Amino acid sequence: MLLDTPICDFGWQAPNFTLKNPQGESFNLADNLGENALLIMFICNHCPYVQRIAKRLSQDTALLINEGVNVLAIMSNDYKSVPADSPANMEKFAKHHGFLFPYLVDENQHIGKQFGAVCTPDFFGFNKHGELQYRGRLDDAKMNDAINRTAELVNAMRQIAATNKGPEQQTPSMGCSIKWSDTL
């Protein structure tokens, strides 16, 4: 199901969390806020929207990381129902696309629900105080034209790092709905 993200709730405070990557290493919000900004994104392996932007996502996040913006990705799908999103496949997907950021498993889907994540990809840009400043899309690329694009996420995160404030105008991200478990 195709969904759009809600409008940015400027100033919403990110809840602290601790999640593990597929290798079992723990990462938490508090240690990753950083001096500039933090991008948290909800992605998964099987979503055609994420697959379509994976190369640009890898390039854009590498730029941000190089500029001192921390980046975490969270996979909140019920991978028992969607085996393509399993931790083993997350590891392969991240390696294939050259992701430089930790790709974390939200096993019980608690963090996805706390954040109000609705789709993959769903981007949350926080300032150094953990206040939400961006809930938009990666870029304005059309289906077959990723060359002539405005890197909206990169521009927003650079603005947040410089001013602690995100852009007033934001275009929602769109993607596949998060696959919530019926048993949790």
Score class of each variant (00 low, 15 high):
N144H: 14
G130A: 14
Y49F: 15
N77H: 13
T5E: 07
K80P: 02
S181Q: 01
N28D: 15
P15Y: 06
P15F: 09
V154A: 09
I74Y: 10
S177D: 11
V82L: 14
G11H: 11
G130V: 14
D4V: 09
Y103Q: 08
K92C: 05
M1T: 14
F126M: 03
N155A: 12
N70D: 05
M143Q: 10
S177P: 07
I40P: 02
G175Y: 02
D9P: 00
E35R: 02
P83L: 03
L63T: 12
E131L: 13
K92M: 04
H129G: 13
I53H: 11
K55M: 01
N70C: 04
R52D: 13
E35G: 04
P6F: 09
F124T: 11
N66T: 14
H46G: 10
L184R: 04
L100A: 15
D9G: 00
Q59A: 14
T150W: 04
F17G: 12
A62Q: 12
N21L: 09
Y49I: 14
G68D: 08
D140N: 15
E67S: 06
L153I: 02
Q13H: 12
H129E: 12
Q51D: 04
A117S: 12
T120G: 08
R52S: 15
N108W: 10
C44N: 15
P102G: 08
K128G: 01
N148D: 13
M174L: 11
A94C: 03
N155H: 13
A54C: 03
F17E: 08
M174V: 08
K165Y: 05
T61L: 00
A73C: 09
Q133W: 00
E67R: 03
Q109N: 12
F101R: 14
A141L: 03
F115Y: 12
K179L: 04
H110Q: 13
S181C: 06
A37D: 08
P83E: 08
C47P: 05
S181P: 07
T120I: 06
E168I: 04
G34A: 01
Y103N: 11
A73D: 10
P121D: 00
N70K: 04
E152Q: 10
E35V: 01
S26G: 10
I147Q: 15
H110K: 14
F93T: 00
E152F: 05
P48V: 08
C8P: 09
A94I: 01
V82H: 08
S58R: 00
I74G: 10
L38F: 00
A14T: 09
I7S: 07
Q13P: 04
G24T: 10
L39N: 01
A94Q: 01
V82K: 07
R135Q: 06
C8N: 10
G34D: 02
T18Y: 07
N155C: 02
V71P: 01
D4C: 12
A73H: 07
L33E: 11
S76L: 09
D4P: 05
G11C: 09
P172I: 03
N77W: 14
C119M: 11
D145A: 06
F123I: 15
M143S: 09
L57Q: 12
